[in-house]
Nucleic acid binder design. Structure first.
Lengths: 256, 256
DNA sequence: AAGTGGTCTAGACCACGCC
DNA sequence: GCGTGGTCTAGACCACTTA
């Protein structure tokens, strides 16, 4: 095995064992090159591997430190569905960070739909869409991206165009236009962030994201809206709760 | 901006524009160093950035090529819930790859629970648990990991210990023991893979994973099982479908 | 000023794939 | 054999942080 891989494995083991806890200073490139008798570039390559794994954060001038995680609850069902059980409370209290200040920036624009959004809204790519672009912050730190797309015809003459909160809720605006949402499909793609996402969210190297599309439908299967969320992996845990249908034991079995 | 970052940005733009489509050969390190008048190590660093973003796959002896994606549908609800709408069919047919051969390896072991599993099963860390470790394959390619944990007391004298398929379904085995699962909580963590996951799944650099915990509960909120799925981002799209409660418009509104 | 990581060089040798 | 990427070196200079 390559030398730098061995050095990286040593450091990784020290992190996983807890010897190097989150926040702890990792040996400097100088120290590693002396300890292992290698060039600094080789020690550097070992650290680069850990950075790309998201285990370590490296800063010019300061050293490298072990990264920690603080997962906030992201619950897609929250908009339409109350908690179902005590167990959910257990998770919420265990995971939610207390005493933090949420805020958001809202930006409304008229754009042309890209292929991904067009496919979900059931319109032609290049059609006009209204998009509410939001970045949510916790204690001033960017937390996630939430861009909501509507077909222009549906939204252009409503409060959706207003770049501030919609007091009665955007779902009720759509309902009044005859697009009451009764069903939604959630899609999650896991990938490394794009450059613009790194910028908007201030992401550290080695931080993957979940890209979450929510397409809302009316009772007659017409798409009403398409949400695009970008959720950094070092800040979110995504939570769903579901009840099994009454006849589950009779009609199905786990694929096992 | 650093030279290698400029080179990387150029290549990234050529990939995003479609000039370099998935499967296309990326310029060699030699070519880049001549084109930009830099040392090969500098060209190499540019390519390394794209590799870590998951955009490019690099192989010794052969060059580097643009990576593509083939997303298979991963639908956590499938076990217990049939499709709800036509729209789901649209997604399924659009996303499912046809004519592929699924297979799996199963391995049953008795282990001690780590803190993550213990917390979810409501037992002490270090308690004995039964774990069914599976790797699922599509056309012989590893696809995802699915390890299912049961408390030892619940599972040790059942077919769950049998390292092959359970014809009647593991959920029915648990139901017969008085642990009929009626509810589940799904948690997703997005992160870079661990070394063991890279090995078991044959992951390329720059491939993040979703780690999916499913905890199943009985009607009186006792945990019955805990599933741990590891889903590589370059192979999965995670799909949920949900209906909004009847009284949604009356009682709630979108946080907007 | 000293110490840290970030960038870049010029060159060497090795491992792998292909012809 | 030849071209590819992978590893490693020794040294240089720059940018940033801290004292």
């Amino acid at each position: 095995m390559a030398t730098y891989r061995k050095i990286a494995a040593d450091l990784r083991a020290r992190i996983e064992s807890g010897e190097l806890a989150p926040g702890a200073q990792v040996p400097t490139q100088q120290q590693l090159s002396e300890t292992y008798g290698v060039a600094r570039m080789t020690a550097r390559q070992a650290l680069a591997e850990l950075v790309n794994e998201g285990l370590v954060r490296s800063q010019q001038g300061k050293g490298a430190v072990v990264r920690g995680r603080r997962h906030m609850v992201y619950r897609p069902q929250a908009e339409f569905q109350p908690r179902l059980s005590r167990e959910m409370d257990r998770f919420m209290t265990a995971l939610i960070q207390e005493g933090r200040e949420p805020s958001q920036s809202i930006d409304v624009a008229i754009e042309t739909a890209n292929v991904l959004v067009a496919a979900r809204l059931g319109i032609e790519p290049g059609s006009r869409v209204v998009v509410r672009k939001r970045v949510r912050f916790i204690d001033g730190e960017p937390f996630n991206i939430n861009d909501t797309y509507y077909s222009y015809d549906l939204a252009h003459d409503t409060e959706i165009m207003d770049p501030s909160d919609i007091p009665r809720g955007s779902n009720n605006v759509l309902a009044d236009k005859g697009y009451r949402e009764v069903r939604a499909i959630d899609e999650f793609y896991i990938r490394m962030p794009e450059q613009e996402e790194i910028r908007r969210l201030g992401l550290a190297p080695g931080t993957p994201v979940a890209c979450h599309y929510v397409t809302g439908y009316t009772a007659d299967d017409k798409p009403a809206r398409c949400d695009v969320f970008v959720l950094p992996g070092d800040r979110h845990v995504i939570l769903y709760e579901r009840t099994h249908p009454e006849d589950a034991d009779a009609m199905s079995q786990v694929d096992d």
